[in-house]
Amino acid sequence: MSGKVVLHYFDGRGKMESIRWLLAAAGVEFDEVLLTKREQYEKMLKDGDLVFQQVPLVEIDGMKLVQTKAILNYIAGKYNLYGKDVSERAMIDVYSEGLRDLMEMMMILPFTPPEKKEAQLKTIQDRATGRYLPAYEKALAGSQFLVGGKMSCADVHLIEATLMLQEKFPAIISSFPNVKAFQGRMKAVPAISKFLQPGSKRKPQPDDVYVKTVMSVLNMQLPVQ
Rank of each mutant, 00 (worst) to 15 (best):
E137D: 03
A90F: 12
A188C: 02
I192C: 03
E17W: 01
F176E: 09
M215V: 01
M106H: 06
T162R: 11
D207L: 01
F195P: 04
Y79D: 10
A188H: 06
A25G: 04
T68C: 09
P198E: 09
S2E: 12
L121N: 02
K117R: 15
L163E: 09
P134W: 01
V179G: 00
R13S: 00
R13A: 04
L7K: 05
I92S: 04
L146H: 03
I124N: 09
P114A: 14
S193M: 00
V33Q: 10
A26S: 13
C153A: 15
L146M: 06
M106A: 08
A161W: 01
N219L: 08
P114V: 10
H157L: 15
D11F: 10
K64A: 04
S175V: 08
F111W: 05
P113L: 01
P190I: 07
D47Y: 10
F10V: 04
G98Y: 02
A181H: 10
I173D: 01
K187R: 08
V33S: 08
D126M: 13
F10N: 01
L72A: 07
K187A: 06
E29F: 12
P177V: 12
A26R: 02
I172T: 03
Q54A: 12
Q40A: 00
I71T: 03
I124M: 00
M220H: 09
Q197F: 08
K180H: 11
